[in-house]
């Protein structure tokens, strides 16, 4: 394994074909069970894509493969034209510009809200550097900025473990904003949020699209409608349908396996 730090900060992701993420015939099996089965998916640069599908369809597993947490058995996974995700470790993939929000909010419970955001900040993340690093004014302003965006500016010094579920979701989204990745993978980001919080999250994501690319996994149809992007339906580890929300909602197979129930 190479140190994420020893490797060069990668050059700009090659977006010459306007594609930021390309998965081709990816398969993953757990003890013979195929969680992903020849999954092929393309995400365009700047796109806001929604992924839906029944429980166990492989949505989270797909994100695990993209971020290096789970190794694919076969297939191709490219970030831009040139970066082969299958050969990289988790920190390397993060450095290349892919950020991720977990299905279950994952934050540093024993650190303060401020410290959570500070650690996420885009910068040199080698051990050696961290030992001598210190937060300058620009960094502090960046954290304060994100704190306002995620409406946690009043909770800055609070221990993150004490936040409400919705606030934890926001904090994790805030960490992604600090990380400033080119591609954001968001696994059920509005679970546990109030309607009002959900609507605000939708606005935030829409404002990020264009400059960033987003892949959002959700079950909340109203939220997906609000986002308004292209929708991909996953079923049993591969793509069942793809298109606008209206198109997939009227697709007979989709109704059978997912929406109809």
């Amino acid at each position: 394994m190479s140190d994420s730090g020893h490797m060069l900060i990668p050059d700009e992701v090659d977006l010459s074909h306007n594609v930021i993420l390309y998965l081709d015939q990816i398969s993953v099996s757990f003890d013979g069970f195929k969680a992903l089965n020849d999954l092929t998916l393309t995400i365009d640069a700047g796109e806001l894509r929604c992924i839906i599908g029944p429980n166990g369809a492989g949505k989270t597993t797909m994100m695990d493969v993209i971020t290096g947490k789970t190794r694919a058995d076969k297939g191709k996974a490219f970030f831009g034209q040139t970066i082969n995700l299958r050969e990289m470790t988790e920190p390397e993939i993060a450095h290349a510009g892919i950020g991720r929000k977990f299905q279950k909010p994952t934050i540093f419970e024993n650190l303060t809200v401020f410290e959570n955001l500070e650690l996420a900040m885009k910068m040199d993340k080698r051990a050696r550097t961290s030992l001598f690093a210190w937060l300058d004014d620009a960094g502090r302003d960046k954290v304060l900025d994100v704190l306002r965006q995620i409406r946690l500016d009043g909770e800055s010094e609070r221990q993150a473990g004490l936040l409400s579920h919705g606030q934890k979701q926001w904090l994790e989204i805030g960490m992604l904003l600090m990380q400033d990745p080119k591609l954001l993978l968001l696994d059920e980001p509005v679970a546990g949020m109030t309607d009002d919080e959900t609507a605000r999250t939708g606005e935030l994501f829409k404002s990020l699209a264009g400059k960033h690319s987003l892949v959002v996994v959700e079950h909340d149809m109203a939220f997906i409608e609000q986002l308004g992007g292209k929708v991909t339906v996953l079923h049993e580890g591969s793509v069942l349908a793809e298109g606008s929300l209206a198109t997939v909602q009227n697709d007979q197979r989709v109704i059978e396996v997912y929406l109809g129930r």
Partner: peptide, 29 residues
């Protein structure tokens, strides 16, 4: 130091640390 906060973060949620781009190996080592 920030190094110490990364250690505390590794203790709390190691996979989160990795997905933020830190390699826990060198911090632990």
């Amino acid at each position: 130091s920030k190094f110490g906060r990364v250690l505390a973060a590794i203790r709390d949620a190691e996979s989160r640390v990795m997905f933020l781009g830190y390699n826990p190996l060198y911090y632990k080592l």
